[in-house]
């Protein structure tokens, strides 16, 4: 089921949570909303679910306008950050909830509900835990119960708010892979919210990067990393070095260094490059010289931190070969860099 968001905006009092947003999730797609806290990603997810009402704009499921439809009627599965399991109910009763609250004429028979619950318990690999209470489960198990509960009503759309936020790293990795499989197998359209870029890049078909209530970029994970659309995206996704520069006729000046600015407009700019997109150089145009402050061997190369005159944060560089000595002067040439206009 496709999801379309048209011109949706939202404010809380004087705080603008969402600028007018346009977004499309294709049927069967797994979409990540990635951004720092306060970027509006959870608000957008809640508006799509119907848990929050947009101030302007429309939400469409498969072309059908659902903006005025309450959450009870939207038929989406929603998984909460802290699971929101019903503490006083067993795992099985939690999963059955969406079926047992249906009006009598729409409610499946008791045996049918039991069969569905058993099926879902199997699906989330908690076959023998149906009679436990949520408090008796681990974090990862609770997350899977929350998923099973959301899936019990057979939604076509699954919305997840920071689904792995409260789990430790190992469980998180396992669950991630498992969730992706589940999504593909059930033919769902899923959107999940995360502030963890690694999670977004690994799991999603496309990543929606958000900041200050705006969408900065929508792209496949590789493109978000390789070709960030804005200074914010370059900064937020992956490691990067950032230099404030002045652009003049295709050249970016930082102190005495001159670098290729591509087709960036003249004026103040921000130049970015990744730590691994550098090579040792002898000097001259297109190079930067800095003093080594730290050198740590990493797999196959050395991570070097180097102080550059006029920059507070040290440059982070991945260099091949023998580690340089601390205090040594090194010169490198960024091989891939991007310059964005400095909006401030």
């Amino acid at each position: 089921m496709g999801i379309t968001v048209e011109g949706v905006s939202k404010s809380f009092g004087s705080f603008t949570a969402l600028q007018p947003i346009e977004l499309e999730a294709r049927p069967g797609e797994f979409l990540a909303l990635l951004g720092p806290s306060g970027s509006g990603k959870t608000t957008l997810l809640r508006i799509i679910a119907g848990l929050e009402q947009a101030d302007t704009g429309r939400v469409l499921f498969d072309g059908e306008d659902v903006t005025g439809r309450p959450v009870t009627q939207r038929g989406v599965g929603f998984v909460f950050q802290h699971y929101a399991l019903f503490k006083h109910m067993t795992v099985a009763d939690n999963i059955a909830f969406g079926l047992t609250v249906r009006p009598r004429r729409l409610r499946p028979a008791k045996a049918e509900i039991e069969r569905r619950v058993a099926e879902l318990l199997e699906l989330v690999q908690l076959k023998d835990l149906g009679r436990r209470y949520p408090a008796q489960l681990s974090g990862g198990q609770r997350q899977r119960v929350a998923l099973a509960r959301a899936l019990a009503v057979e939604p076509r759309i699954l919305l997840l708010d920071e689904p792995f936020g409260a789990l430790d790293a190992k469980v998180r990795k396992e669950l991630r892979r498992w969730l992706r499989e589940l999504h593909d197998r059930m033919g769902l359209t899923s959107i999940f919210v995360t502030h963890d870029q690694e999670e977004a890049l690994e799991l999603a078909d496309r990543v929606v990067v958000m900041d200050h209530g705006r969408i900065e970029q929508v792209a496949v994970p590789d493109a978000v990393y390789r070709a960030p659309a804005s200074a914010f995206v370059f900064d937020f996704v992956g490691e990067s070095n950032r230099l404030p520069v002045t652009v003049e006729r295709g050249r970016a000046r930082f102190g005495s260094a001159l670098l290729d600015a591509g087709d960036a407009a003249d004026g103040p700019g921000l130049l970015f490059f990744r730590p691994h997109d550098v090579e040792p150089a002898l000097g001259g145009e297109g190079t930067l010289s800095a003093t080594v402050t730290l050198a740590r061997p990493r797999a196959g190369m050395t991570r070097v931190e180097a102080a550059l005159d006029g920059l507070d944060a040290p440059l982070e560089l991945d260099l091949p070969g023998e580690p340089p000595a601390v205090g040594e002067r090194i010169t490198v040439r960024p091989t891939r860099l991007q310059v964005f206009p400095d909006r401030r």
Binding site: A49, G50, L51, P70, V71, T72, Q73, G75, V76, G77, F78, F80, H82, A84, L85, F86, F97, G98, V101, R102, R149, A150, A152, V153
Partner: peptide, 11 residues
């Protein structure tokens, strides 16, 4: 959260 979860399940 609990109430919202219940509502999203159609209660």
């Amino acid at each position: 959260d609990d109430e919202e979860a219940a509502r999203s399940l159609g209660a």
